[in-house]
């Protein structure tokens, strides 16, 4: 049961984050110090298809995560769901067309290895 929940969390988190990044890139930089910037962002995100799809994925991920946390240790639950990190970096390069330099690849891999060690 716990690994089924982990699989659901990984896939839903990956989809959610990539859609969120794609949506927010379309929004453009949020100027947080400008008055009303956050209100404008909120008004925009509730109507954007990418963000709506992203929130749906993240809701699935969140409720699966709640289930997992209700019987698994926090220090199992959090690291086990980190497999999504590498998957998301791959999608950042090919779907979001980010320039993923060797520093970022190495950084993402180090973090993923570290997170697996945390789960041991």
């Amino acid at each position: 049961m716990r690994w089924l929940l982990v699989a659901v969390i990984v896939l839903a988190t990956t989809g959610g984050q990539v859609l969120q990044a794609a949506g927010m890139r379309r929004h453009g930089e949020v100027h947080v110090t400008r008055p009303g910037a956050l209100r404008k962002m909120l008004a925009w995100i509730v109507r954007n298809e990418f963000i709506i799809a992203s929130v749906a994925c993240m809701a699935v991920s969140f409720f699966a995560f709640m289930s997992l946390l209700s019987f698994a240790e926090l220090s199992f639950a959090v690291p086990a769901t980190a497999a999504s990190l590498v998957l998301q970096t791959v999608l950042a390069k090919y779907a979001l067309k980010e320039r993923v330099s060797w520093k970022r690849w190495t950084g993402a891999l180090l973090v993923a290895c570290g997170v697996v060690m945390l789960a041991l």
């Binding site: 453009g28 963000i51 950042a92 993402a108 973090v111």
Partner: peptide
């Protein structure tokens, strides 16, 4: 969401780890 409006996902993910 605000952070991802100007920063790359492949930057935000490892850094917020």
């Amino acid at each position: 969401m605000a952070l991802l409006s100007w920063a790359d996902l492949s930057y935000v993910l490892p850094v917020t780890s």
